[in-house]
Design a protein around this nucleic acid. Structure first.
Lengths: 197, 197
DNA sequence: CTTTAAAGCAACTTTGCGTTGCATGCAACG
DNA sequence: CGTTGCATGCAACGCAAAGTTGCTTTAAAG
């Protein structure tokens, strides 16, 4: 498909630069105005690119969104490995809190949540979250191996229980969880699990 | 301001009916299309009202949104009082889950989260959540009075910890929490708190 | 019944999206 | 180093929806 009798491709410098600029601009616009009311013309202006370029390369607004979100949410994060579940989860939880507190990421997350309905964008959320959970899972697996957690513990459930309250307090009431609250979320869940039938 | 030498007001029947119809239509449109791309004309059509009426009464789309959301999120819910924290919280948590699973409310919640940025709408979220927490607080207070929870327990924190995971799993990964998961969220937190230093 | 605020109606202006045709620039290849 | 042609820039257009305005009609308040 790729290496056939290719008519000259135009993969180099300028095109790549344009693509990247548009991606950045799209995510920036998304962060500012949310998934709603973000216009191609606005993105083009931010990217310093002509709107026809965007229309020709991506066609629809949704395709652009899918592309940009796909790129913007692929960034991997460093999963802590400190030697104990408690501090691993505490570190992870603080990362999560800091991430969702940043307005940019906050709006990206809202956009992801909104995308669940869209035809074209529906796949983005699941894929993103699958990646995040897969990355975080080792924390729990290591803990089980160490004997810190009961063998049957489901990693995803545990992570949801730890991270959920942080999410909720940011996206619902809009409160910024302080360190004490974050640690408390970790402790309560760990204690609860260890004493659970 | 209100009761002065009022030139005849027109508070009665028709106006009220129009207001209510528009409110309903706005929330319906919001549920369908999200905060994005909801047009005054669409709302007018849904409400069976002329668009000029909406433009004249509310002026901007944001003012209408603020008004409708303010009304739509004021609905009080029944707070369970079963005699034990565990079942109270379980009932509350299921209510919450069912609420956020319904597409209509789901989009309303997303709209509320999005509104945090807007100039005009910023106050809606906090007001809504203040109401919800105030309503739910008695569950915890009664539990403390019964000796089921330690005296210092902060109601809001507890509720956030119970409800957060449900929110997260719906709005993040997009999974519908089953009853077992809901109950587990309640149990883990209660056990965790009772064994917490 | 009279008065008049509020809703309906129809036409208009404006705005902004998406499109098209053509000129220009730059990477790919000889 | 020069040629080729794909990708971008530019400017103007068509069109649909947003929002506005002047006037008429309806119905609540007295």
């Amino acid at each position: 498909m790729e290496g056939s009798s290719s008519p000259r491709r135009r993969t180099g410098g300028r095109s790549a630069r344009v693509t990247q600029a548009v991606h950045r601009a799209t995510l920036a616009a998304l962060a500012d105005k949310g998934l709603a009311g973000l216009s191609i013309e606005d993105i083009a202006a931010r990217a310093g690119v002509n709107k026809t370029t965007i229309y020709r390369r991506w066609g629809t607004r949704e395709a652009l969104m899918a592309d940009a979100l796909g790129v913007g949410t692929t960034r991997q994060i460093a999963i802590p490995d400190t030697g104990s579940v408690r501090s691993d989860l505490a570190a992870l939880a603080r990362q999560v809190r800091d991430t969702i507190l940043a307005p940019t990421n906050r709006n990206l997350m809202v956009a992801l949540a909104t995308s669940a309905g869209h035809e074209t964008l529906a796949g983005l959320g699941p894929r993103y979250w699958a990646g995040r959970f897969a990355a975080s899972r080792p924390i729990v697996e290591r803990a089980i191996a160490r004997g810190e957690l009961p063998p049957g513990t489901d990693p995803d459930t545990l992570i949801i229980q730890v991270v959920g309250p942080l999410w909720f307090s940011v996206f619902g009431p809009g409160r910024a969880p302080d360190d004490a609250f974050v640690d408390r979320c970790v402790d309560i869940v760990l204690i609860g699990i260890s004493h659970h039938a």
